[in-house]
């Protein structure tokens, strides 16, 4: 996993609630057996029409908006557990997703792929949308070390929460498997002590 570094970037605003993983990456694109290339189909049916032509009114097709930060309405990433959603977001070039609420599985998948999901209060989310709609060149600063996200133009800042273990994984580029593999002996000991041996 890539190390997560301090980020200053413009944002792509998507003020829609309950964006589910079927929108992020429709099921018909889940047939690949590798992790690469999902970015091309990120938000496929919102981005392209049935003839594969870009839809001009979708924000990702609007050159005014760009950047490594996606900002979306509440309950982002609900629905299917498909990690392909996180892969698509990462592959497209987003390093951060900001919302006022994330679905659990998506949040975990994002963190396991070096994408930082930041939960902010509703009013702070509104401030970000207001800033970017007022001027799309407005940038945010995301500093994982200090756990802050700042709207550079206004100086408004919010200190977000993240599990300290996950924070250190992102900063150092470690993944969970490296850590659990180091605990193998403990796991084998646990298996010997399980009282309910009828489970296989």
């Amino acid at each position: 996993m890539k190390k997560f570094e301090k980020l200053v970037s413009r944002v792509v605003p998507l003020p829609i609630e309950n964006i589910d993983t079927d929108q992020i990456i429709p099921a018909r694109f889940l047939k690949a057996t590798t992790r690469e290339g999902f970015g091309n189909n990120l938000f496929r049916d919102w981005r392209y029409d049935s003839n594969d032509q870009p839809k001009a009114d979708f924000v990702m097709n609007d050159p005014t908006y760009s950047g490594k930060i996606l900002v979306a309405g509440k309950n982002f990433g609900c629905g299917s557990s498909r990690e392909h959603a996180a892969w698509a977001i990462e592959d497209y070039g987003f390093n951060v997703v900001i919302s006022s609420f994330f679905a659990d599985i998506f949040k975990g998948n994002a963190l396991n792929n070096g994408v930082l999901p930041i939960t902010v209060p509703d009013d702070f989310l509104e401030k970000i949308f207001a800033a970017v709609f007022a001027d799309p060149t407005n940038e945010l600063t995301v500093d994982l070390e200090t756990q802050t996200v700042t709207i550079n133009a206004t100086g408004d800042s919010f200190e977000f929460e993240i599990n300290p273990y996950k924070k250190s994984c992102l900063i150092n580029g470690y993944d969970d498997i490296d850590y659990i593999l180091s605990q193998k002996e403990l796991i084998e000991d646990f298996e010997q002590t399980r009282p309910f041996s009828f489970y296989k």
């Binding site: 599985i105 975990g108 998948n109 396991n112 993944d175 969970d176 498997i177 659990i180 796991i187």
Partner: peptide, 13 residues
């Protein structure tokens, strides 16, 4: 439900 990175974790450990 879990993501694929977690599927790998369970496979491994």
């Amino acid at each position: 439900g879990i993501g694929t990175s977690q599927v790998e974790q369970v496979f491994a450990t």
